[in-house]
Design a protein around this nucleic acid. Sequence first.
DNA 1: ATGAGTGCAAACCGTTTGCAATCGG
DNA 2: CCGATTGCAAACGGTTTGCACTCAT
Lengths: 145, 145
Amino acid sequence: MTITFDVLAEQLRAGGHKLTQPRRAILQALLASAKPLSPAEIQQSGQAFCAELGLVTVYRTLEILESIDMVRPVHVADGCHGYVLATPGHTHHVVCERCHAVVEIVGCDLGDFLDRVAARTGYQITDHWLEIAGICGACQQEKMD
Amino acid sequence: MTITFDVLAEQLRAGGHKLTQPRRAILQALLASAKPLSPAEIQQSGQAFCAELGLVTVYRTLEILESIDMVRPVHVADGCHGYVLATPGHTHHVVCERCHAVVEIVGCDLGDFLDRVAARTGYQITDHWLEIAGICGACQQEKMD
DNA sequence: ATGAGTGCAAACCGTTTGCAATCGG
DNA sequence: CCGATTGCAAACGGTTTGCACTCAT
């Protein structure tokens, strides 16, 4: 929400990466979007900031951003991946089935549930990954038509 | 757990689909595996039952099986999909990070959590999808070495 | 100045489709 | 027998790689 371009730029530099025009464009594209973007969408949107932005660069940059936890992949049902800027810490997403708007659930109180799972299965739980689909407020309105 | 070949065969027929050799082979491959199999793995494993089994047939059969809820796709971290036989009803999976063994969580008491999410976000929750990663009992033992 | 980063083209891989031959009910 | 199903080969779309050029520091 309150993430700014400058903060992102600093994070990149802190990771030992250069702040190039294409990378600026990719960050701008992600900042400007409320929904997960596919690599192709990032390229298209980013070309407003850097006309020459290549798809290959988008892939390579996303790889870096993901490795330093600046973006999070959102796996959507049809197998295509989308990317959103990451909020620090553990989060989950709720994605609107109609308009694909995303809201992040910042706190995650699945602890009890996972404890039960661990007890029942004998597994030592190390990670979990939850996607929630729904219909956002705006689209619920529209549906009334 | 207690799913047999005959039950699966009957389900296929009930859906109006023919029980062919390749399809038998695919069901056998899925029955024989404790972990999610990729289409290529299913083909390879299934060729023990039907030597000519083609990859295309695996894809087409999985499509049918998924449409009648006989298999469930398990999305693994690296983007590759795997398939496991489905237990009727809503389930989640816990996948071992080391040996990829899977156990199904048959009941799902996420209701309260989802209600809170709905209340907090204004979304009408329609579906959710949870994958849990952990280390299974056997692999925890090994780790002691 | 120099290595990191870029874009292009081509390779790559998993998946889908068109079609003639085959099989199951 | 007849339509559903199959396997092959080829098309396809997204992702990755090799390479020479450019840019940020």
